[in-house]
Design a protein around this nucleic acid. Structure first.
Length: 934
RNA sequence: GCGGAUGUGGUGGAACUGGUAGACACGCUAGACUUAGGAUCUAGUGCCGCGAGGCGUGGGGGUUCGACUCCCUUCAUCCGCACCA
């Protein structure tokens, strides 16, 4: 009997479990989310940053962005757009390789398992992805095209005249016609000049060497953090105090041949393109800083008694008469050549100590000024004075030319250096004190500077550049901080390069067939320190040319730099994407993802898109028109207090009475900060006999804190648990209800009941006590129409401006209002169901079907807002005195200003608040406010 | 040091172009129904005050009839970048 009652009761409830199962099945069966290119509809492309399928699975933070984009995609579909909304996996990556090293399991298997788990989790949330378009960057049919794009880059150079990439044959043609003198193209700094005759005389090896200086992807010698112990190159942040963070092995600076991408060729376009993008200002600013454009001049200083000269870049050429010394980076190639014998020992010692420090360590210490004198002198180009040449590690080899002209009166670092080593500090500013520090203010008038004296900084800068150009010893120059991107990794689990070596020359593989990852016996470097791929024998490669294949693999960002294009045409065997499909779908209209990719992924994708556009493969040169960066969801940890040296725990509110320490406790053992004591005892063996000091309510209260979600803090919430307890629709709505998408916010399950109750309330609105669907088919009345149209208006506006959280409140208000009106009108409910469908698609489908519709709700048209239902005869005016609201007054909506004033001033409450004084001024904004100034 | 973001009840947050601060929800209080409830319903809930009333959007100042919103300044927290010549 009790069983029956319970069953009856639960049967009456909104049964999310069977509803969600039913509709997920229906969608699969009828291919509801399949997308095709249709000329009859306008297109819209909504994209999520695809995930790396990690072994830990999804936590509630991951789907946040996916839910938002899914809502927007579903909304746009209701609005009549043909919406592309795909999903895939960025499936090459270190964790799978790490796992392979430990267990010997091939990373492809680990990856496959993880992907299956992700897919299972994603499917439960009810996304509208067209899974036929799924891509995986680690699948040969995908990375075949990553390799293909690499080859296009290899076969291209950047023409500075036309400002775009062109086939390398054009360059070869130009070289054989007239050498490289007239060629304006992006190339290495050390590219020599040659004539057509010289070009023809070059050996094949020499020709290739020259071409590598122009190719958009090329081999170059690069300083890297080499870790012998791990047999690999480490990123800066993997190195701590000269040792590897992982394993604590020594790390040395080593010159290695690496593939690089000539992204610097695109610096200016990457910078200017930002202006056309609808991205957050902060991300654009980060990219601008990363590109780091600065305008200045390059100046050549002759070296005394030498045929060498030093080239410097300066942004303050106006201060050139204040130069009293030069500083070279310790790694500068001139250091050895110009150092005087008597200084040799000191310089070598200094260089050695500088080399021991990593770039990051060197940069971290801003306080200490260090340097050494080379004994050599440069000659000032205008005054012919002798200028001592120093080296110092505050000058970075990798920025500008690795040398500076030091102006101690105008640059604080130069000032500190000069003060430390007793170098002259010349004052070239009018009326400016520099005894305590440099004057970096550009407004000072230049003085003691020959032909520049009396000028402002701006005038002088211009004048100097003219003078330098006249003398042929300098020119105006634009410098970028952006460096070419290193593109090779000494790893296994990445894309192999479509490159082989013949006679020591790197050549692109001739066919477009995929170079597949060969099997290897171990996922470790060889004993000779070569990358794991060097373990593969000739026969292990599906394609093999020349002496050997390239052993490096591509970095993580290779596959993610173009994946948005593959979704458009995922099964194309002939091309990475057909021109027609790329033209049809075009740019991503809305891209949602985390801000942590601000420079990496987002800059490289922009670079590749521009390149592919230059070479005519696609028709647009920016990948992501609009982007929203979702904030991270933080965990809410719970704590218990253990009294020191005991097994007794004291409730949070009484902890101060004891000496105790705080321990993380699994959030699954805590409900609304109250500990489930029995569950806690069973949690771990050591707590089995724990004792508890409770508070006045006979409860054990836990402390809480908001921090990042992590296993070790026992604060991870998985979407699976919540879907199980409340259903996907509740989870979707709650993730949105939490707050603005972009903001960082704590995850707190407390509120999820509220959203769940809302769906149940909605369900009960259209069902009777026996859970029979129950609505009325009649003309809706004015109040019902008003509630509905208020909702249509706000939901539409809020989704359009991506204010996903406020939409949930609006839907709640509508249901509350209809509840108060006891309204279950079919017309009203039908439209409300469409409004809620982007948020709660299973729920909406079920009601839509019960409303006797044959088609899926996803095909329903978005409700049309009609102003006339909101028109009111009266308006409730807030009446303020000196800006403070005192009371409200209902007045007819069509009253004129004068009539309103009359009505308000004769109202008894007004007279009361005026206290006999007469109003100075009455401000009336019709249908807004009345403000009386006394 | 430079750059960015954030700061509103006990909590998450709302207030879009300056116009009733605290919508919506959580939590809490009281009550109703019930064998039971992580159910439902009703009422209340920014702070101070018995009250009239006063005070309130991190602090200070300004513009305005009117400021969470605009300007200046300052503090706090978080996140990037960092000797960039």
């Amino acid at each position: 009997m009790i069983n029956f009652a319970v069953k009856l009761f639960f049967g009456m409830e909104y049964d999310f479990k069977s509803i969600e199962q039913k509709w997920q099945g229906n969608w699969r069966k009828s291919n509801t989310y399949k997308v095709e290119e249709l000329d009859t509809m306008p297109k819209f492309y909504v994209l999520d940053m695809f995930p790396y399928p990690s072994g830990a699975g999804l936590h509630v933070g991951h789907p946040l962005g996916y839910i938002a984009s899914d809502i927007y995609a579903r909304y746009m579909k209701h609005k009549g757009y043909n919406v592309l909304h795909p999903m895939g996996y960025d499936s090459f990556g270190l964790p799978a390789e790490q796992y392979a090293i430990q267990t010997g399991q091939h990373p492809a298997i680990t990856t496959e398992n993880n992907i299956n788990r992700y897919r299972e989790q994603l499917d439960k949330i009810g996304f509208s992805y067209d899974w036929d378009r799924e891509v995986r960057t680690s699948e040969p049919n995908y990375y075949k095209w990553t390799q293909w794009i690499f080859k296009q880059l290899f076969d291209s150079f950047y023409c500075d005249t036309d400002n775009r990439a062109k086939p390398i044959e054009e360059l070869v043609h130009a070289f054989s016609e007239s050498g490289n003198k007239g060629v304006k193209a992006a190339c290495d700094e050390d590219t020599p000049q040659f004539t057509a005759e010289q070009w023809h005389a070059f050996s094949e090896y020499e020709k290739e060497d020259i071409l590598q200086k122009y190719r958009l992807t090329f081999l170059s010698e690069t300083w890297v953090n080499w870790c012998e112990g791990l047999g690999t190159v480490l990123a800066n942040d993997e190195v701590k105090d000269g040792r590897s963070e992982r394993g604590n092995f020594p790390v040395e600076q080593k010159l290695m041949k690496q593939w690089s991408m000539r992204i610097t060729a695109y610096a200016e376009r990457l910078l200017r393109g930002l202006d056309t993008l609808d991205w957050s200002d902060s991300i654009k600013e980060i990219q601008r800083n990363w590109i780091g454009k600065s305008k200045g001049a390059s100046v050549t200083f002759k070296i005394e008694e030498s045929d060498q000269s030093i080239n410097v870049f300066t942004t303050r050429s106006d201060t050139i008469f204040g130069v009293t010394f030069m500083v070279l980076a310790p790694e500068h190639e001139l250091v050895n050549k110009i150092t005087r014998p008597e200084q040799k020992e000191e310089i070598e010692k200094y260089c050695q100590s500088a080399a021991l420090k990593s770039e990051r360590d060197r940069q971290a210490d801003v306080k200490t000024v260090s340097g050494a004198f080379t004994g050599a002198y440069a000659i000032h180009p205008f005054t012919n004075e002798r200028i001592p040449i120093w080296i110092g590690d505050y000058v970075l080899a990798s920025y500008g030319s690795g040398a500076v002209m030091a102006v101690p009166c105008g640059d604080q670092r130069d000032w500190s250096f000069a003060s430390q080593f007793g170098i002259e500090i010349k004052n070239i500013f009018n009326d400016t004190d520099i005894s305590e520090g440099a004057n970096e203010d550009k407004s000072a008038i230049i003085d003691h500077s020959d032909f520049l004296s009396g000028m402002t900084s701006k005038e002088a800068t211009q004048k100097v550049i003219e003078a330098l150009e006249e003398k042929g010893i300098g020119e105006g120059k634009i410098n970028y901080r952006l460096r070419d991107a290193i593109f090779s990794r000494q790893r296994y689990w990445g894309e192999p390069f479509p490159i082989y070596y013949e006679d020591g020359i790197a050549k692109a593989t001739p066919s477009n067939n995929c170079i597949e990852l060969p099997p290897v016996d171990k996922y470790l470097p060889t004993e000779q320190g070569e990358p794991p791929l060097a373990r593969a024998n000739k026969d292990d490669w599906n394609i093999f040319h020349g002496e050997r294949m390239e052993y490096n693999t591509m970095p993580g960002w290779a596959g993610s730099s173009w994946y948005f294009l593959r979704y458009m045409d995922p099964h194309n065997e002939e091309a990475f994407v057909s021109k027609e499909k790329a033209d049809y779908w075009g740019q991503v209209d809305l891209y949602i993802g985390g801000a942590e990719h601000a420079v990496g992924h987002l800059l490289y994708s922009r670079f590749w898109t521009k390149f592919l556009c230059d070479r005519g493969f696609i028709g647009f040169d920016e990948p992501f028109k609009k982007m929203i960066n979702q904030g991270m969801i933080l965990g809410r940890s719970n704590f218990v207090y253990r009294i020191n040296d005991t097994n007794s725990f004291v409730s949070f509110d009484k902890r101060k009475e004891y000496k105790c320490s705080r321990l993380h406790v699994d959030i699954n053992l805590v409900n609304n900060d109250v500990l489930d004591i029995e569950a806690f005892k069973n949690w771990r063996e050591e707590f089995k006999d724990a004792e508890f000091i409770l508070n006045e309510n006979e409860e054990y209260l836990c402390d809480f804190e908001v921090e990042k979600m992590s296993k070790s803090k026992y604060n991870v919430q998985t979407p699976d648990d919540l879907v199980e307890k409340f259903g996907a629709d509740t989870l979707r709505m709650y993730e949105m209800f939490l707050g603005p998408l972009e903001q960082f916010k704590p995850w707190d399950t407390k509120g999820i009941n509220g959203v769940h109750n809302f769906l149940r309330k909605f369900w009960r609105l259209v069902h009777d006590d026996e859970n029979n669907f129950d609505i009325e088919q009649c003309e809706p009345n004015n109040e019902e129409l008003k509630a509905l149209h208020k909702c249509i208006k706000k939901v539409t506006e809020d989704i359009e401006r991506h204010s996903f959280n406020t939409v949930v409140s609006t839907l709640m208000i509508a249901v509350n209002e209809l509840n108060d009106l006891k309204s279950k009108n079919k017309t009203i409910i039908s439209q409300l169901v469409v409004l809620i469908s982007p948020y709660a698609p299973h729920f909406a489908e079920e009601l839509w079907q019960r409303l006797e519709n044959m088609d899926s709700v996803t095909l329903a048209q978005w409700p049309q807002f009609d102003e006339k239902h909101l028109q009111e005869d009266a308006f409730t005016y807030p009446v303020s005195f000196n800006g403070k609201m005192r009371f409200t007054m209902d007045l007819s909506a069509d009253l004129s200003k004068d009539d309103i004033e009359k009505a308000v001033l004769s109202f008894e409450k007004t007279i009361q608040y005026l206290e006999g004084k007469s109003p100075k001024r009455v401000i009336i904004v019709p249908k807004k406010i009345v403000n009386i100034v006394v």
